[in-house]
């Protein structure tokens, strides 16, 4: 195997490792909220540091691969996609941290209402994240396309969560309840953003495989 191919494999493996950490962060942060388990926060914050370091290492590796090898064709598309995926994964880690912080405060109090649509959002988004990473690992553009189709479902669920929370907010008579409603809104927004990042990664996979840019179809 050529040295360049060894380096490219290493880049892919690093991204997959980072994706594994991000998936674990998302799982821990959402468990913290749904299972009301504050210990999960430790996992989130511990992995965040590792993800941040990986982001820098992967970016540096991509720059060196471009500068030293002048890649073209599929190699160039892989590296440019890897740089964007790297950035999306790091932001997904940040969203997991945001969810964890809000959940940590929320679970100190009793539940406002049983969570129904938020766990549904979490399930859809976790599947999106898993599928986009698998699509990246296996160059599966069909799987990546299926992720794009799920983004609307997440957006609709978020809108439903917001509608329910607005009603709670109107009914609320104290600042503390309003603050908890606002925190849940932030959490719903973060989960939706996780779906957006999974969508971005899927678009990158399609570009990587076919050289076709499917971002912003309406522009």
């Amino acid at each position: 195997m050529r040295h360049f191919d060894v380096e490219m494999n290493d880049l892919q493996n690093r991204l997959l490792d980072m994706a594994g950490l991000v998936q674990a962060m998302i799982k821990a942060a959402t468990q913290e909220l749904v299972a009301r388990d504050p210990k999960q926060a430790d996992t989130v914050f511990c992995f965040e540091k590792k993800v941040n370091i990986q982001e820098i290492v992967i970016d540096d590796k991509c720059l060196k691969l471009i500068a030293l090898n002048q890649p073209v064709g599929a190699d160039l598309r892989f590296i440019t996609s890897a740089m964007r995926i790297n950035s999306d994964l790091e932001r997904m880690g940040d969203e997991a941290v945001n969810i964890s912080r809000k959940a940590f405060d929320l679970i100190k109090h009793s539940e406002l209402n049983p969570l129904v649509d938020i766990p549904k959002m979490i399930e859809v988004v976790q599947n999106m994240v898993m599928d986009c990473i698998r699509a990246f690992n296996t160059n599966d553009s069909e799987l990546a396309l299926s992720v794009l189709a799920k983004d609307d479902e997440v957006n609709n669920l978020k809108n439903r969560v917001f509608d329910d929370l607005k009603i709670l907010m109107v009914k609320a008579s104290d600042m503390e309840t309003i603050q908890r409603v606002v925190d849940l809104m932030f959490i719903a927004k973060s989960i939706e953003r996780l779906g957006d990042h999974a969508t971005n990664i899927s678009e990158d996979v399609i570009f990587m495989v076919h050289g076709k840019d499917v971002r912003h179809p309406r522009t």
Partner: peptide, 10 residues
Amino acid sequence: FTNPSRKETE
């Protein structure tokens, strides 16, 4: 150089 059609070119 970004997305050739033929595998031989790639």
